[in-house]
């Protein structure tokens, strides 16, 4: 058993894009989008690591790549110390049990023609084919109750359309839980939910981590939520991790200009702004045309000439605190 459940080293995911009939016909080289560009990230056992970034920063792609739902271009993904890209079907079947994913939109991720019971017990086809209905019901009830749908028996034979958004998300969590996975990729699991139910879902993750030792990759765009539940946070921009460190860095310990800008625009309810907001100009460039040197330099408020030419290294500035910047400094 290795110390980290997931280790990514130099992971790269490229997508080739279609570009019209003529270009295809003359076999011009396809343009590639570098969605994830050589990232390094470890997820320890029983740890929640948040991957935060804007849309298009590659956070979902990273999550999908770890679970082998998207082919990777190069780099290694070690799961429990073993490289998974080269594994055979047998291993992958086992892997699918051990690693699970929770999707963003509970309105689309549940089959509308299945009952809750069918949805929750579907993964058992993989592991426990011979289970009787009664056994399956037992397992489903246990999973649903863990996910906070009590009394579970009332929900077993309902259809998804009879449930609210929060309840649906609980059903997806129960589906994931029934496999007792070691590792879960949660892709924006609460972004579609109201603030009042959000906390309950987050508590489930924390409980799962504490009781079962499950590890999480929590993908979100909300820095404050990431700070709330995770042990470590990685901030992504245009396919690269800009800064990675303990969750507490969000509350004023960030060193990368991008993460500082992100934290500065966070509004806290009932709290006056302590620092000036740094609102970055323009928008994130297209991943088709990644800027030279440091990819953040065109929008960086403290960019220097060197930033345009040389790509910074991903280095450790203090124990456990990694940064992708030539001149880490406090700007707020």
């Amino acid at each position: 058993m290795s110390e980290n459940i997931v280790e990514l080293s130099n992971l790269e995911v490229n997508f080739k894009i279609r570009q019209g009939f003529v270009n295809e016909y003359i076999k011009r080289d396809k343009k590639t989008v570098r969605a994830v560009d050589k990232i390094n990230l470890n997820i320890g056992r029983g740890e929640i690591v948040s991957l935060v970034g804007e849309s298009g920063s590659g956070k979902t792609t990273t999550g999908r790549a770890i679970l082998q739902l998207t082919p990777t271009t190069c780099g290694d993904i070690l799961f429990d110390g073993q490289e998974i890209k080269t594994k055979d079907k047998q291993y992958m079947k086992k892997f699918r049990e051990r690693a699970q994913m929770i999707f963003q939109d509970p309105y689309q991720s549940l089959n509308p023609r299945f009952t809750v019971f069918e949805i929750v017990t579907e993964p058992l086809i993989l592991t426990n084919k011979k289970a009787s209905i009664a056994e399956k019901e037992m397992l489903a009830i246990e999973a649903l109750e863990f996910a906070g749908l009590k009394p579970a028996i009332e929900y077993l034979y309902r259809y998804p359309h009879e449930l609210s958004g929060g309840q649906r998300q609980r059903v997806s969590i129960a589906t994931c839980f029934i496999m007792a996975p070691e590792f879960i990729v949660a892709d924006e699991p609460v972004s579609m939910l109201d603030a009042s139910v959000r906390a309950d879902i987050l508590k489930l993750f924390v409980n799962m981590k504490e009781q079962k030792g499950t590890s999480f990759l929590f993908i979100t765009h909300d820095l404050a939520l990431a700070w709330l539940i995770s042990n470590r946070i990685a901030i992504m921009y245009l396919g690269k991790i800009m800064e990675c460190g303990p969750a507490d860095i969000i509350a004023g310990g960030c060193m990368h200009p991008y993460s500082q800008a992100l934290t500065s625009v966070l509004a806290m309810v009932g709290e006056k702004r302590k620092t000036e907001r740094i609102v970055l100009k323009d928008e994130t460039p297209s991943p088709l045309f990644i800027p030279s040197g440091c990819r953040f330099h065109p929008r960086c408020p403290v960019a220097r000439p060197e930033c345009k030419e040389k790509e910074p290294e991903y280095r450790e500035i203090s124990p456990g605190h990694f940064i992708h910047c030539h001149y880490p400094q406090k700007i707020i």
Partner: peptide
């Protein structure tokens, strides 16, 4: 129900 990063880290209310 909204977390405040400038205060002590405690779970938000539901």
């Amino acid at each position: 129900a909204f977390p405040n990063i400038y205060q002590e880290r405690k779970m938000v209310d539901s």
